[in-house]
Each structure stands twice: as C-alpha cells, then as structure tokens.
C-alpha cells in the first residue's frame, strides 16, 4: 500500500523533485565557483571567498523552505482537486491515509537533501582549504534535511486541514496583524506578530532550525 502511495506521489511531483534536486546539488558547488585552490591565495582573497560562500549559504534556508513547502502542497494537490473523494472512499482510516501520504512525502523530501549532500561533498572535495578553514558537508546536509522536513510537516498539515481549519489559521494571523496595528497606533512597543515569530524561530521553536549559521566552509 505504502509502495503504491509513494509511487503515485513520486509520479505527481517528479518534475518538481528533479528540478529541486538539480538546484540542491548545484548550490553548494556555487561556493567553490571562485576557484579550487584556495590554499595558495592571500588572506584578503580568502576573506572575500568566505564572504561569497557565506552568501550562498544564506540562500539555503530559503531553499529548504521552498522544497518543504512545495512537497507539502504537492502531497495533497490531486486530493484537493478531487475534494478528497478518492482518498476518503478508500478502506483505510483517515489517520492511516494521512500517515501514508506524509510518509511518502518524507521519503521524497530526502531526494533533494541527498542531492544537496552530494553537492556539498563534491564542493568540499573540490577545494584545497588553507589551515584553519574547514568544510562541514555533513552538518550542512543534516541541517538542510531537518529544515526541509520541518517546513514540509507544517505545510502538509496546513494543506490537509479542513477549509474551516485553514480559515481559522488565516483568521488568527489576520487578527494578530490587526492587533499589532492597534498597538502601534497607541504607541506600544509590544508586537504580537514579532513575539510569535521570535518564539517560533528561537530554540525550542520549530522554525529555529532555519535561523543561525548555514555554512559549508567556516573557520
């Protein structure tokens, strides 16, 4: 059963997956675009090179969000189009079907992660690093995988929610923004949206994986 769900989900998202995987493989390689023999360059050039690699690394959390969000949405696209009639008429409890879909999406999310790991490994092997500079392909790949899966899980849950549930979430966000505007009008320094975002992106918030340093090369 899982094999068939995985296969069907793969078929529906294979083009997006192929494109994302190529990008995931290419992004770490961009870090070494400026040259492979870094060990021989001067201190100034090394600093410049590290800044460039850092800029590339800053793209990665956004890329993880893109991969996770896209796979989360694609997991349900065809069921939403069919108003979930096919899924609901199958002889499995709803929770089991959701678990099958989630599991299949999780496996598929590992494909771009594997591509990124491969790209990071190739990039790390392609350069001769000077003393004091290290490559972190494994750490970066694990971080990317966790970030992708976190975003995937959130978007998957939102996409599978009932329309009433989705409206409730949109309503809550709108209410928070309106409350902030009200607080701003009264000169208050407190912001509900900012505090919520802070709570989500600071450990142990679920999105804390997206912030912090994402570096393939570092001292």
């Amino acid at each position: 059963m899982f094999k068939q769900v995985l296969f069907a989900q793969w078929l529906s998202s294979r083009l997006a997956l192929a494109l994302l995987s190529v990008l995931a493989f290419a992004l770490p390689l961009v870090s070494v675009f400026y040259g492979s023999d870094i060990a021989t360059v001067g201190r100034g050039s090394l600093g410049e090179w590290l800044v460039v690699t850092d800029r590339v690394a800053q793209v990665l959390p956004f890329f993880a969000v893109l991969v996770g969000a896209l796979l989360g949405v694609l997991a349900w696209t065809y069921d939403i189009a069919g108003r979930h009639v096919y899924a609901l008429s199958l002889p499995v409890p709803r929770a089991v079907f959701v678990a099958l879909r989630f599991g299949a999406g999780t496996v598929l999310a590992l494909v771009p992660s594997a591509a990124l790991a491969a790209g990071a490994a190739v990039a790390s092997l392609a350069v001769q690093l000077p003393p004091g500079v290290r490559a972190y392909p494994l750490e970066l790949s694990v971080r990317f995988t966790l970030a992708t899966l976190t975003v995937y899980a959130i978007i998957f849950a939102l996409a599978s929610a009932s329309r009433r549930g989705q409206l409730a979430i949109i309503g809550a966000i709108s209410a928070a923004i309106l409350l902030d505007l009200g607080l701003l009008a009264f000169g208050a320094s407190f912001s509900v949206t900012a505090e919520t975002l802070n709570a989500l992106t600071t450990w142990p918030g679920p999105l804390s994986i997206l912030v912090g340093r994402w570096a393939l090369f570092d001292v």
Binding site: A8, Y86, P91
Partner: peptide
Amino acid sequence: YVPERPHLYTYLTVAQAIRYHGAFY
C-alpha cells in the same frame, strides 16, 4: 463506489491506476 464525478488521479496510467486501487483491497 463510483462517484458522480470521476475521482481518480489523472496523472496515472490505466495500469498504474489499477495497481494503486488494488493495493487497498
């Protein structure tokens, strides 16, 4: 169950749809 409007995943082929559906029964 045959619904009023076809509910199958349209990106599947006939053989794939049979394999997918059969896996649940």
